[in-house]
């Protein structure tokens, strides 16, 4: 990354071929996780997303940046929100898109992941957007694929575009990430959203507080430079943003906590608890929400909730990632 160029804000995509979209580059052909991104690359994606967001406000929400590029959305795990968001992002950039969902694919017929992807690769896609239940599956694919791989969630590992859209949402409201206190509460152990957010927020200089029952705290996580507490009040105290993570019913069945009712009583985000945060706190949730389990409806629907902004920003951030990985700078070169 050339430091001289990292502060440059990309100009708005114009939507015509003769005025190409300038941008800097990402070092890798893939977006596997926040772990692989530098601070400059994160800033580049967030800055590019600012330009992308404007497109959604146009009457014609489409630019030709990815015209002629083929993007395959390869979802081995059920997802509505993320897949829809990627698909809209791809279409707004004029990519040819294809959705493959595991339930209908040959995976159920016993084909290996490698073979499935080799077959798709034979049809020369440019980018693969992959969601898979196994941690590291995108790393595995990136080693055997020519196409770029975008991680849309791998097991309990990372969900980098979610963390990028969360950061975008915070930055949009607070104009910065460094120095902010961000509390993340819920099922920390099983959450890929958590891992990506911890990596991104600590890289960008935020003060990160994690809160959840000790049974759902990953081992040794304090080494990642975060505070860990089982007190919601302590985590939320003076926070600039509070992110809630989904609590799944199967965690209760797995014995991580006794009941959803008790979980809400001890860890649920209630209006009373939110009052300990800064008055202009942002309430965030990657969805889907369990109202009355991790978050009270009054909080989810309250004035400081940016949960729907996160969804809107997800499209812009994914457009930025798709655009940068499909060779934004090359566009410039051939134009």
């Amino acid at each position: 990354m050339n430091p001289e160029t990292t502060d440059a804000t990309p100009s708005l995509p114009t939507g015509t071929d003769d005025q190409p979209i300038p941008a800097n580059r990402l070092r890798s052909k893939d977006l596997l996780g926040i772990a692989e991104l530098s601070v400059e690359e994160i800033s580049l994606i967030l800055d590019t997303a600012v330009a992308m967001k404007e497109i959604a406000s146009r009457p014609i929400k489409k630019v030709p940046a990815l015209r002629g590029k083929t993007v395959v959305n390869l979802f081995f795990e059920a997802s509505t929100r993320t897949r829809t968001s990627f698909e809209i992002a791809e279409k707004r950039l004029s990519a040819d898109t294809l959705n493959i969902v595991a339930g209908t694919s040959s995976v159920v017929k016993g084909e290996t992941l490698a073979d499935t992807v080799h077959n798709i690769e034979a049809m020369s896609p440019d980018l693969l957007v992959v969601r898979h239940s196994s941690s590291g599956s995108c790393h595995f694919l990136s080693r055997i694929c020519r196409a770029g791989v975008i991680n849309a969630g791998d097991g309990m590992h990372e969900h980098p575009t979610q963390a990028l859209l969360d950061a975008f949402t915070i930055r949009e409201r607070k104009q910065r990430l460094a120095g902010l206190k961000v509390a993340i509460c819920g099922d920390l152990l099983h959450s890929r959203v958590l891992r990506s957010n911890v990596l991104l927020l600590t890289k960008m200089g935020a003060d990160v507080w994690l809160c959840g029952p000790p049974t759902l705290v990953p081992t040794g996580f304090a080494r990642s430079g975060v505070h860990i507490t089982s007190s919601v009040d302590e985590a939320v105290e003076g926070a600039d943003a509070v992110m809630m993570l989904r609590i799944q019913l199967e965690r209760m069945l797995g014995g991580y906590f006794p009941s959803l009712r008790e979980y809400f009583n001890v860890f649920g985000m209630t209006p009373e608890r939110v009052r300990r945060a800064k008055p202009d706190v942002l309430i965030m949730h990657p969805g889907p929400m369990n109202r009355g389990v991790e978050i009270a409806s009054e909080v989810a629907d309250g004035p400081y909730s940016v949960i729907l902004d996160q969804v809107a920003n997800g499209v812009a951030v994914r457009m930025a990632v798709l655009y940068l990985l499909s060779g934004g700078a090359e566009h410039e070169a051939v134009a």
Binding site: S135, D154, H157, T219, F221
Partner: peptide
């Protein structure tokens, strides 16, 4: 191994 590396890589740990 159930430790920081597995935690960050999202791999289930064997303590």
């Amino acid at each position: 191994h159930d430790g920081y590396i597995a935690a960050m890589l999202g791999l289930r740990g064997i303590p």
